[in-house]
Design a protein around this nucleic acid. Structure first.
Lengths: 187, 187
DNA sequence: TCGTTTATAAATTATTTTCTGTACGTTCTT
DNA sequence: AAGAACGTACAGAAAATAATTTATAAACGA
């Protein structure tokens, strides 16, 4: 809060309160990104801080241990929501937010969804193959088994179709094609 | 597993294994929907089960308490991933999956995202108003304060722009307009 | 090279979430 | 009306997750 130094106490308090409200809300809703509330608040704090922050300054303003800050910073780095920046003269690592929320959004969901889709498609492909083997081995005379297999096959095919759609959606996010359908605002 | 009754043990085992692989994968990846792995497995089981299931049958096949099944069923109902169906002759409640995964997807993310966006926009609007009050009160002579307020204002405006974009994306999901950009496969 | 400062790893503690067993209210059957 | 079957609320046990403290490693300056 160094930058509020020297303001009238009333003004400083009111600005802090205004910021705090937003930081709090961001913190609460960051669970969309699978992030803990305290890491979310940390991000909110960094968002409003002008210029990069250090682990120590984070620790001080969050009232939490430096180790926790170290962990939190790592998760935000992994999500590409913040960057480590180099700053002359300081031995401490410095961090600041990546302000492109559109990219944050796309990156996060692309990665998560893709991971899930790929895992499920892989399992389903494997099982589909086995089910078809069973169909071939069984022969047409075993009607009950054949219809059972047929129904499983159909379910998997249906799911695969959906996953292929989701992959296309992910691609639209990754390539930015999504902005053709849902454009950003004009400047 | 009643429906596998009467099959050769070898065939039954192989089919079970094929299903189990998929159920397992679904269960593991259901955390995208904020769902516990065991509830995810429950869903997977229901997905492959032909016809509706009861709490008792779920309990038996999952090897978990009936209370857990009751809770799990409720969360899946809330997410509209399963429906309670009526079935003549049985006093037990019966459930089956809603097979429209596109709708599941849209519903879930629309609701989640909308909730977060609305909360954050509301907090930001309030704070933006207060910041503008401060700007007006301060007068132009206090340059340092004005530039501080200006920078906060800009950050909030930037965020709001992003949220309006996200709202439009949510709308595209809700109305199905998303399928214009990313169409489902032809039949 | 040695002492300092910074960042992270490992172990511990605290908190939250998930699961189970019991108990209770409701609905159906007789 | 009594008894049985069913679903769920509740409280506590078990498991998983988050945060802290302590200890170690890496980077830097003298």
């Amino acid at each position: 809060m160094n930058e509020l130094e020297g303001l009238s106490p009333d003004v400083a308090a009111r600005l802090t309160k205004a910021r705090e409200r937003v930081i709090d809300s961001i913190g609460k809703n960051m669970d969309l990104y699978g992030i803990t509330q305290s890491v979310g608040r940390m991000y909110g704090y960094m968002y409003f801080h002008n210029g990069p922050v250090t682990l120590d300054s984070l620790s001080a303003s969050m009232g939490m241990s430096k180790t926790s800050m170290s962990n939190g910073v790592r998760t935000l780095l992994d999500l590409k929501m913040i960057d480590k920046v180099w700053s002359k003269g300081s031995r401490k690592d410095q961090y600041e937010v990546v302000p492109d929320w559109y990219a944050n959004f796309s990156d996060f969901f692309s990665i998560r969804w893709r991971k899930a889709v790929e895992a499920n498609m892989s399992a389903m492909s494997r099982s589909l193959r086995e089910i078809r083997e069973l169909m071939a081995e069984a022969g047409a005379e075993d009607e009950r088994l054949q219809s059972l297999l047929k129904s499983d096959e159909a379910k998997i095919n249906e799911a695969m179709k959906y996953y292929r759609w989701l992959l296309r959606l992910i691609e639209a996010l990754e390539t930015g094609k999504i902005f053709e359908l849902v454009p950003k605002e004009e400047e």
